[in-house]
């Protein structure tokens, strides 16, 4: 016998959107109608769409009631890159832009399976230099210096 099956993965975005809408409205409570009208209309639209998505996600399956087939475990390499990126962003204010960029590139290339030492070190140094020239020297961006000041800002 077929049971109703709900794809929880599909409901993640509507749930997040509605939570955000509730938070948004809570910040405009007690204000004149002009300030409340726009988020209220958008939230109403979101509720209608979320209901349509929910009904659409009720699919007939032979077994199971709740699962999340659309949100499976991400690919191992994607997880590695995301973790190294988070570490990169966290360490940038401490180590500085240049050092953290070099370390991020070396670590992620190595962890993603680039085994040739010359290749991953060479690529990291070249990319680091290109980024430095482009962002610091050319676009005059004041990136975090960390314990070492970014060379362009010495002068």
């Amino acid at each position: 016998m077929n049971k109703t099956h709900i794809d929880l993965g599909e409901l993640f975005i509507p749930a997040s959107a509605l939570l955000f809408a509730v938070y948004y409205i809570s910040t405009v409570l007690g204000t004149p109608w002009e300030a409340r009208a726009y988020p209220t209309v958008l939230t109403a639209g979101m509720i209608v769409c979320a209901a349509a998505v929910f009904i659409g996600s009720l699919v007939k399956k032979s077994e199971g009631a709740f699962s999340s087939p659309s949100l499976r475990m991400p690919h191992r390499k994607s997880v590695i890159l995301f973790i190294t990126s988070c570490l990169y962003v966290a360490l940038m204010p401490v180590l500085g832009y240049l050092v953290s960029s070099l370390l991020f590139l070396i670590a992620s290339l190595r962890k993603l399976g680039v085994t040739d030492k010359k290749l991953f070190i060479g690529l990291s140094v070249i990319t680091g230099l290109v980024m430095y020239i482009l962002f610091v020297m050319f676009m005059d961006m004041h990136l975090p210096g960390g314990f070492l000041p970014v060379p362009g800002e010495w002068f």
Partner: peptide, 13 residues
Amino acid sequence: VILAPIMMALVLT
């Protein structure tokens, strides 16, 4: 495996 980390560093900056 080469393109993704380089792209990530560039776009985050």
